[in-house]
């Protein structure tokens, strides 16, 4: 084992030895301080959650006066419906390709910035600006850029002789949506990973230098392993967010053309507010919640691991 991997072990052992917070005893004051939040949180999360389970078992249309018990009808309907599986499929395509690409670009840019001798702060500031753009504005903006008559990017593509109907074509609409997501959220990954890189102790890097490790070896064996937690955290946050937002799709493609950008979230909005079928929508919502809760648990585990 080369000298410098041993140095890493020592560094992480030292980090682990940092004393966790000493805690005063749990008492009444804390209970009363936490209570209002818990009540509000229960009102806006637990109660709706059970309400959703109830609604998923009802024939619940906004036009009906009273919901009627329907047993597992809604569940049977969604689980056997092609659209349900299709939209989870589109969600998976959107999520996986979006995440893989923004992870690759985000980490690459973070590494490049890490090695920049001058102007890192300014470049990072400019790079993160898309993060502050509201998703609905991002949608509008990209719709404008890609507009077949007036769009700037569309005009550029035309100069290369490409015939363009990007958001109106089944084969290019999803890639365009993915591109928008990459544009807006890659900086988040860069930001988190760069913060990790900057906290890597210099000692193992210097030891590696002495041992004659090349730049790429240092990245592969020291830098990347030490920011692994940051990468996992940013991936988890991004994957929950991809399920979370439907703004961009609502503004740009409305799930089309031919359902090619109909993700599960957009499908839910359609079932609930266009078809007014609240029972089915509730069942769809529960499938989304289950996925989020699993990811949330995973997130908390990673957080705790970082604290010990």
């Amino acid at each position: 084992m080369p000298q410098w991997t041993r140095t890493i072990d020592r560094a992480s052992a030292a980090a682990a030895a940092v004393r966790p917070h000493k805690r005063a005893k749990w008492n009444r004051t804390e209970f009363w301080m936490l209570l209002p939040s818990m009540i509000v949180l229960a009102l806006i999360s637990i109660f709706p959650f059970f309400f959703m389970i109830y609604a998923s078992l009802m024939d619940y249309s906004l036009s009906l006066d009273e919901p009627v018990f329907a047993g597992l009808d809604n569940w049977r309907r969604i689980l056997t419906s092609e659209t349900f599986w299709h939209s989870w499929g589109r969600t998976a395509v959107f999520g996986v390709s979006g995440l893989v690409l923004q992870l690759a670009v985000g980490v690459l840019v973070a590494l490049l910035m890490y090695y920049i001798p001058k102007g890192r702060n300014l470049i990072l500031t400019l790079w993160m600006l898309p993060l502050f753009v509201a998703p609905v504005v991002a949608g509008l903006l990209w719709k404008y850029l890609l507009d077949p008559t007036y769009g700037l990017y569309d005009w550029v593509l035309k100069q290369f002789g490409l015939n363009t109907q990007i958001l109106g074509d089944v084969s290019t609409a999803m890639p365009a949506i993915i591109l928008m997501d990459i544009w807006e959220w890659t900086p988040l990954i860069t930001l988190i990973v760069l913060a990790g890189l900057q906290s890597v102790p210099t000692e193992p890097l210097e030891a590696a230098e002495v041992d004659g490790a090349s730049g790429l070896q240092k990245i592969r064996y020291i830098l990347l392993p030490m920011v692994r937690r940051m990468i996992v955290v940013s991936l988890l946050i991004r994957s929950m967010d991809i399920l979370r937002y439907v703004d961009t799709i609502t503004i740009t493609t409305e799930g089309g053309p031919a359902d090619s950008t109909k993700t599960i979230g957009y499908y839910l909005m359609q079932v609930a507010f266009r078809f007014q079928d609240m029972g089915t929508a509730a069942a769809l919502g529960l499938t989304m919640l289950v996925v989020t809760i699993i990811m949330g648990n995973f997130f908390v585990k990673i957080m705790k691991k970082g604290e010990d």
Partner: peptide, 20 residues
């Protein structure tokens, strides 16, 4: 976990019961 799941819950899945 409860708090984080509430924060990260998909917006469509939150909107629906709140709407009703």
């Amino acid at each position: 976990s409860w708090i984080i799941s509430t924060r990260m819950a998909p917006i469509p899945a939150v909107i629906l019961p709140l709407y009703l």
